[in-house]
Nucleic acid binder design. Structure first.
Lengths: 343, 343
DNA sequence: GTGAAAGCGCTAACAC
DNA sequence: GTGTTAGCGCTTTCAC
């Protein structure tokens, strides 16, 4: 491997000067700098990040832990994070927690050994405790809040997103609206449920516990929950599903029961996706700006890192702890008026 | 940060012994080892991967470059790689080339600085040249072959996958079968095109150049190509599309032209996906074992790394250069007999 | 079986 | 402006 020593020798300077020429050009005579740069170029020099990180205690690396990279929403988050990180010369170490606190812990431990300069995490149910592993590390929680106080979070406005979706349904005359919602130890699930409740109240509908079924964010859970809800004596005429994977399950359940959407059942999902657009009827959804969410989280983290090392301009000194991005309700063909149905 | 020094002091031994106790237990007295292990445990010691990597020139890190993490196929590849890597204590540095050779080069350069022990890459058109950046690094090419001779590759059997799909179409009586295929500088596209040709020949149909349109793997390309093919004076009665993103485009094009699948057009795509299953009619596809592909690539790479350092048992000494996994044609509702149509 | 010492490649502190 | 020196945390000779 070509090291800084070789470059220095080729340029006829000391290693220290070579280092400065490359990273602090202003400390070096123009002429010297050019000699070094040319030598580096010619030899194909690439700095050894490990050595530099060891010395400066700054690896130019950030950690990212998502709960499920196979979920396009998370893949998109990851891309947003990566693109911003890369643009700033940071490398991303990505891990999957698969929604399991134990895997998350392992990821955090591995990460810790790599001495990252920051962390972006989509929390699981136990992140609050696990984050102790990387105590002191600038951290941004993405999409969900772990509940750790003082934590920086970048999330979507779940409350009003859900409220809007359900209000759309009540506006169509639906009174028996079911909800399939994630585990209540996840902040997004709590907020979306609350939005549902508020929308019902706004429409003067009393909340019915039996119309709300929990699921663990997976397709299979959504299917089972939908099957149960739709097999009731008085099944709901509309369904609001709290995450994209579970929505697929709900669609499958409706098909199994030969319910036609939207004639027999109106459906709104949370989070847009390719299949929601191509299935027929196309699905109405609460769309989330996933890519932007990832970008903002990364920008936020970089500011935190900058703020810590004091490289920051005044503008960002007072970073908001919590950022909320808006959702957008997309009307497609999966909802219909109850009146129309009965007619 | 808790370092090995602290652990050593707490255990009343020298740093050297502490290091040995943790990584070469056989070189240390049982009693000593236990003391060290307990101390490490108690203090929450996590080895500094940077320091170790610097010293041993082995970072326990591998690089992964995919062309598009937003493509579920690639996300699944990545998950397969990650799961295997993690199980063996390796951390994955993942990059996106977005199908752009320049981004791929940048990723390779960044990667190089991190001193990875191996690389898994889904090649772009110029990978053969760019790989020079990491010359000597154990490398596995995934899903596609860069053309570098002697390279280790893990791919799917594109040729027979495509042949089977098109033979299915000819078996249904189709004679005018269009193909939308990726750039010919990508090996998968070449192989799939060849499979198409062979299937035609097998059915005694003469190849028509004008029925084959290229696209750059994106949805928009697929749409445009399909639009052109389907607007011909004598449009094809069936379409075989060479990748999943472009297949979405083809479906959209068919809808725009008010062609009903499969009545007016039979369609087979390459690579299965969520939307292919949920759209109606459900799409027949050549399914690829994406997760397994990633797993196998990573196992292969780990063997290469092992072989290099001589840690390997004889069994894997003679690693095959190229691994091919089979595809599987899934029959759903997007294809129909021409005869039935005309009837 | 264990400790002392050197050094991986780099940069920060201190001289000059 | 530039060189010298030391040391980041770890592993690995080489002694004992």
């Amino acid at each position: 491997m070509i090291g800084l020593n070789e470059v220095a020798r080729a340029a006829g300077v000391s290693p220290a000067t070579a280092s400065r020429a490359l990273h602090r050009p202003e400390l070096v005579a123009l002429q010297t700098r050019e000699r070094v740069e040319q030598a580096a170029q010619r030899l194909g020099y690439r700095p050894n990040v490990l050595a530099r990180g060891l010395r400066t205690r700054g690896s130019r690396t950030i950690g990212l832990i998502v709960t499920d990279i196979l979920n396009p929403f998370h893949a998109t988050l990851a891309k947003g994070v990566q693109d911003v990180a890369e643009a700033h010369g940071y490398t991303v170490l990505m891990f999957n927690s698969d929604e399991q606190p134990s895997k998350e812990r392992r990821a955090l431990e591995t990460l810790h050994g790599h001495m990252p300069q920051g962390l972006i995490v989509v929390p699981t149910a136990e992140t609050r405790e696990s984050l102790e592993i990387v105590a002191g590390l600038p951290t941004v929680e993405l999409d969900r809040a772990s509940g750790l106080k003082g934590a920086h979070t970048v999330m979507v406005d779940n409350l009003s997103g859900a409220r809007e979706a359900v209000t759309h349904l009540t506006g169509l005359g639906h009174r028996r609206i079911g909800m399939i919602v994630g585990q209540q130890d996840i902040s997004t699930a709590r907020e979306r449920l609350q939005g549902y409740c508020e929308a019902l109240e706004l429409a003067g509908i009393v909340y019915q516990d039996s119309l709300v079924l929990p699921g663990n964010h997976r397709e299979a859970d959504g299917r089972l929950a939908a099957l149960r809800l739709l097999s009731r004596r008085e099944p709901p005429t509309a369904l609001f599903v709290g995450n994209n994977e579970m929505t697929v399950g709900a669609v499958l359940a409706a098909r199994e029961l030969s319910l036609e959407i939207p004639r027999d059942l109106s459906l709104v999902g949370f989070d847009d996706s390719r299949w929601a657009q191509t299935m027929s009827p196309a699905l109405s959804v609460v769309a989330q700006p996933a890519y932007e969410l990832g970008q903002v989280a990364c920008q936020h983290l970089l500011h935190l890192i900058g703020a810590q090392t004091g490289t920051q301009t005044g503008a960002y000194q007072h970073l908001l702890e919590s950022v909320r991005l808006p959702t957008r309700l997309i009307y497609r063909q999966s909802t219909a008026s109850v009146l129309a149905v009965r007619a």
